[in-house]
Design a protein around this nucleic acid. Structure first.
Length: 535
RNA sequence: GGCUCAGUAGCUCAGUGGUAGAGCAGGGGACUCAUAAGCCCUUGGUCGCGUGUUCAAAUCACGCCUGAGCCA
C-alpha cells in the first residue's frame, strides 16, 4: 500500500518501555492511552505516524522475580509481556511498534551505540561503592535511607552494599551542552514544573553514572568486557531507537535512525524524568545523534484521593476497569477529567457521573433525539439545505468554525482535558439550540424549511464533535459516523488519507441529502455502584 | 535543610490588579423530539492563614500553615 503523506512531517511518539516485573498497572495504561490519543490525532491530520510502546525486560529485579517464581527470566518476561499486549488490545491502543528489549535486533543496536560512545571516549572503568536498591536499580545516598538500611521508596526492602568495578558514562562532560539545550529549547521538558526540577538537579553539577553491573546475568554483556553486564537503563532507553526500524530489516544504528529519528515526543511518568531529560540526551550527544523533540512527564493517579499501591491494597486494575466499562469510557475519563501533567484522581462515582453526563446524556442523547426527528421529518436523510446559506452568526456555526483549531491546539499541546471541554461546549450549545428552536413544534406548524435548517445544524455539530473526539473515543465516533450515514472506521491507520482533515474538522461539511443510519443509543448510561446497605 | 508546584463552591478546575466563575453533584420548574436524557431557574465560597503595597488584591510582596514532588 502506497500512502501519500504529502508535505506533512513524520511524527513519532513513545510511551515508556514498561518494566515487566508485574502486570500493567493503571499508570501504564494512562500513559499509553495519552500517547495513543496523540498518535491518532496526528494520523487524522494526515501525518505519517509511528507510535511506539514496549517492554523493558532486563535487570536484577526481573532476574530475582523470575527466580522466586521458579521460571527463567525469559519465560517470566514472555508471560507478562502477553499481559501488556492484551491490555493494549482491549484499550484499543493503535501502536505501530511494540519493542521488547530482549529482542535480538535490540542487542545489535545497543552494541553499536555503545561502540560509538566508547570511541568518543565517554566510557571508562571505575569503582562504584554504595548502597544499592535492587527495586530502584539505583545507588542510594546513605542519608536518604530509612532505619535498617531500607530504601525510602521500597520501604520493605533493604538496600545492599555494593563495592564493585563498573563502567561509567561521562555525564559530567555534557553539563554545559545540556544546560544549553534546556535554555535553547524551553519546551524540551514539560510541563514547566518538571522542567524546573531538572534544571535545579543539573545546576547542582552532574556526576558520571554507572552503566554496567557485575554479578548480573540477565542483560546484555558490555561489548568491550563481557564479564560486566550493561545497566538496564542504558539498554532500555535505546529501545526507542531499535523500535524505529522495521523488525524484518537487518538491524543497524544508521538504518534505525535514518527515517524516524529524532522522536518527537517521549511521554513518561514523572518518576523517570531524570533518565529521559538528562541521561538520555547526554547519551545521544555522545553518540552524535540529535536529541528528541519533547519529554513530557505526566502526573500520577490516586484512587479516592489516596496514593495507590500494592502495600496499601487499593490498586486500580486496568483490566477490570476496561472489562467493566469498555475502552472508550476508560479513555474518555482519564483524558477529560485529569489535567495532563498534574496528578489526577480516580473515583468510581465521579467516573460514572462524567461519562453519563458527557457521553450518554449530552452527546449520545443529542444524536439520538436529532436522528429520530430527521427520520420522521426529513425522510431519514440529512436535511437538504445549502450549507453556504447558513448565516455567519448562527450560534452553532460560530462555535464550530473555531473549534477545529482550538482542539488541534489542545491535542498538540497534550491538553486533552481542554480539548474535550471545548468539544463538549459545542454539544451543550447544540442541546440548548434544539430546545430554543423546538423543531418538533416547527414541524407541527408546517415550517418544513425551518425544521430542516435546525436539524442540519445540530447533526453537523454532532458530526464535528464526533470527528474531533475520535482520537479519544474511536469506537464511539465510529458509531456516530455510521449513524450519520458515513462508512468510516476511525481505527484505520490511514484515516488521514481516507478523510480530509480540512473538511471534517471544519463545521459545515455534512453532505445534504446523505441517507442516515439507524438511530440507536451510542453510549449506554452507566449505573452507579450499589451502595453497601448498612446493617 | 534547600528548591519546585499546588491550596478558589460537596467534587474537578478556570480566573494574574477593577462587583467571585464553569462543568458535575444537590433542590425547584416548564416542555416532550430523545437514552427518566435535554432546557430554564436555583442552593452553595470571609478565593489556606496573617501582615503589607494600592483608590482597589483570589491576583502583587513578605511571613506562616497544609499537601504533592525534586535534591543521583
Amino acid at each position: 500500500m502506497t500512502l501519500n503523506f504529502a508535505d506533512k512531517p513524520r511524527f513519532a511518539i513513545t510511551t515508556p518501555l514498561y518494566y515487566v516485573n508485574g502486570l500493567p498497572h493503571i499508570g501504564s495504561a494512562y500513559t499509553t492511552i495519552a500517547a495513543d490519543v496523540v498518535a491518532r490525532f496526528y494520523r487524522l491530520m494526515g501525518h505519517s505516524v509511528l507510535m511506539i510502546t514496549g517492554t523493558d525486560e532486563h535487570g536484577q529485579k526481573i532476574q530475582r522475580t523470575a527466580e522466586e517464581r521458579g521460571v527463567s527470566p525469559q519465560a517470566h518476561c514472555d508471560e507478562f509481556v502477553a499481559g501488556f499486549e492484551h491490555l493494549w488490545e482491549l484499550l484499543n491502543i493503535s501502536c505501530d511498534r511494540f519493542i521488547r528489549t530482549t529482542a535480538d535486533r535490540h542487542q545489535v543496536i545497543v552494541n553499536e551505540f555503545f561502540q560509538r560512545v566508547w570511541e568518543r571516549g565517554d566510557i571508562y572503568q571505575g569503582q562504584q561503592q554504595g548502597w544499592y536498591c535492587v527495586s530502584c536499580e539505583e545507588f542510594k545516598e546513605e542519608r536518604d535511607l530509612l532505619t535498617d538500611q531500607r530504601c525510602p521508596i521500597h520501604t520493605k526492602q533493604q538496600v545492599e552494599w555494593r563495592d564493585e568495578s563498573n563502567y561509567f558514562f561521562k555525564l559530567s562532560k555534557y553539563q554545559d551542552q545540556l544546560e544549553q539545550l534546556y535554555a535553547d529549547r524551553p519546551d524540551f521538558i514539560q510541563p514547566e514544573s518538571r522542567r524546573n526540577e531538572v534544571l535545579s538537579f543539573v545546576k547542582q553539577g552532574l556526576q558520571d553514572f554507572s552503566i554496567s553491573r557485575i554479578n548480573l546475568d540477565w542483560g546484555f554483556p558490555v561489548p568491550t568486557d563481557p564479564g560486566h553486564t550493561l545497566y538496564v537503563w542504558f539498554d532500555a532507553l535505546l529501545g526507542y531507537i531499535t523500535a524505529l526500524q522495521d523488525p524484518s530489516d537487518p538491524p543497524s544504528l544508521a538504518a534505525a535512525t535514518a527515517e524516524w529519528w529524532p522522536i518527537n515526543v517521549h511521554l513518561i511518568g514523572k518518576d523517570i524524568l531524570r533518565f529521559h531529560a538528562v541521561y538520555w540526551p547526554a547519551m545521544l550527544m555522545s553518540a552524535g545523534l540529535p536529541v528528541p523533540g519533547r519529554v513530557f512527564g505526566h502526573g500520577f493517579l490516586t484512587k479516592d484521593g489516596q496514593k495507590m499501591g500494592k502495600s496499601q491494597g487499593n490498586t486500580l486494575d486496568p483490566l477490570a476497569l476496561v472489562h467493566r466499562y469498555g475502552p472508550d469510557a476508560v479513555r474518555y475519563y482519564f483524558m477529560r477529567e485529569i489535567e495532563f501533567g498534574k496528578d489526577g484522581d480516580f473515583n468510581e462515582t465521579r467516573f460514572i457521573n462524567v461519562l453519563n453526563a458527557d457521553l450518554a446524556n449530552d452527546l449520545g442523547n443529542l444524536l439520538n433525539r436529532t436522528l429520530k426527528m430527521a427520520a420522521r421529518y426529513c425522510e431519514d436523510r440529512v436535511p437538504v439545505i445549502d450549507p453556504e446559506a447558513i448565516p455567519l452568526d448562527h450560534p452553532l456555526a460560530a462555535l464550530g468554525r473555531s473549534l477545529g483549531e482550538t482542539v488541534a491546539e489542545a491535542y498538540t499541546h497534550l491538553a486533552f482535558s481542554q480539548g474535550c471541554t471545548a468539544i463538549l461546549a459545542l454539544v451543550q450549545a447544540s442541546n440548548k439550540f434544539l430546545d430554543d428552536q423546538a423543531p418538533w413544534s416547527l414541524y407541527k406548524q408546517g415550517k418544513q424549511a425551518e425544521t430542516e435548517a435546525v436539524l442540519y445544524a445540530v447533526l453537523e455539530s454532532v458530526r464535528q464533535a464526533a470527528y474531533l473526539l475520535s482520537p479519544v473515543v474511536p469506537s464511539l465516533s465510529n458509531q456516530i459516523y455510521t449513524q450519520l450515514g458515513f462508512a468510516v472506521d476511525f481505527n484505520q491507520k490511514d484515516i488521514g488519507q481516507q478523510l480530509s482533515y480540512g473538511d471534517h474538522a471544519a463545521w459545515g461539511y455534512l453532505p445534504p441529502g446523505q441517507p442516515l443510519g439507524v438511530a440507536s443509543p451510542v453510549f449506554q448510561r452507566l449505573e452507579l455502584p450499589e451502595l453497601v446497605a448498612s446493617p
